[in-house]
Design a protein around this nucleic acid. Structure first.
Lengths: 207, 207
DNA sequence: CGATTTTCTTGACATTCGTCCAAACTCTTG
DNA sequence: CAAGAGTTTGGACGAATGTCAAGAAAATCG
């Protein structure tokens, strides 16, 4: 019985590991081709497995993509936590935040465009909504942590609601991503300028 | 000769009319199903023509969708021009602008989600980029007209670049659209509050 | 009206898609 | 080692896709 449970856990762990492995592979392919043009066969082809395996580990296409989405969430949530934790001044935090924003656009552009793709898809496909809204809320909280810490360091209170702050920054980010992907050289610099300009305006005016 | 030219023009006009008719039908279907799941057959089925006609008037699928996109641009450009032209005070302009924003989300949600869908697609498909960037620039100018008039009425200069202002408002708009489509009742009210709150911060501080 | 051009219908084509399945293979366990 | 569960393979399926072409139908013009 003890041996059985050990085995069972190992088997289950292996199963989970494969699921994550396939989900990550799916994310890579989706990030390259986009939701519309990514097939299960293409995902399998870009992994080390055959297309049949995908259906052994995932009920259907939605199961695979939603699993990938949830896995993606776990990665990006902590993106700015280091900056928040280590920054000792408001400007240092703002600079570090902007640097990370630019860095992630450069390094992870495919994942970001996939996110915007899937968020747009969720406006059409009900099956995607729950996962998208969950991640959206998580990203909003991530931004909120940066902003409240920034306010703390400045010594002023945050003026705008969490949702508004996230929407504003997301608008800037999305524009920069589109600009970066369409070879507008100044897109990343502009992002930094605009974000640095915006941040103080999200706080209460100084007394 | 005179008769021929008359006929030729009539023929060309008829051809253009059909193209627009089909492009509009395509936009309706795309707005319902999204880019990923819309087929030429479905577009034709939702129109009064058969799928063969689509290929008589359009070279291929891209030709149809890009034509639809350009047609869409012409419609939405003038959306806020009335408000800009008739408003006599800053608050009146801001209120009218916000009302129009909310109104268009309610009335034309399918077209808006299609726009965000296609803009996301343009990050993957090079063929869509030119049309998307053109429309994006047009929308930015549309917002800029509202904002400069608003600044004029307030008596202060606009502080942020055109692109940043557009990105910020677009972020709020996109969030409101997603909220509206996912039955978050307060989404539209929040949009109004956030936009009204943002507008003054886009201007130079009062001297 | 007859001839010619333009427009539309219909069916076919090669692909590709998601899904499923039977058989082969791999590994753990008794 | 043998048995069995778990995993992987590769092919098959029907459905749907974009594209195309041949011919019917309609409109136009001499």
């Amino acid at each position: 019985m003890a041996g059985t449970t050990t085995t069972r856990r190992t088997v289950a762990e292996k199963n989970d590991a494969r699921r994550i492995q396939l989900a990550e592979s799916a994310l890579r392919t989706l990030g390259e081709l986009g939701y519309a043009r990514t097939s299960l066969r293409e995902i399998a082809h870009n992994s080390e497995f055959t297309h049949g395996v995908v259906h052994y580990y995932f009920r259907d296409k939605h199961d695979l993509i939603v699993t990938g989405l949830r896995h993606y969430k776990a990665q990006c949530v902590t993106r700015y936590d280091d900056v928040v934790a280590t920054a000792t001044g408001a400007d240092e935090l703002a600079d570090g935040f902007v640097d990370k924003l630019v860095e992630t656009i450069v390094d992870e552009a495919p994942m970001h465009r996939l996110w915007y793709d899937l968020r747009a898809q969720s406006m059409f496909e009900v099956e995607l909504r729950e996962a998208v809204l969950t991640i959206d809320a998580t990203l909003e909280q991530m931004i909120w942590r940066v902003l409240t810490r920034y306010a703390e360091l400045v010594g002023r209170a945050v003026r705008v609601p969490s949702a508004a702050a996230y929407a504003l920054l997301d608008g800037l980010f999305q524009q920069a991503l589109l600009g970066h992907l369409t070879d507008r050289a100044e897109a990343l610099v502009d992002l930094g300028v605009h974000v640095r300009d915006l941040l103080p305006h999200l706080l209460e005016p100084s007394a």
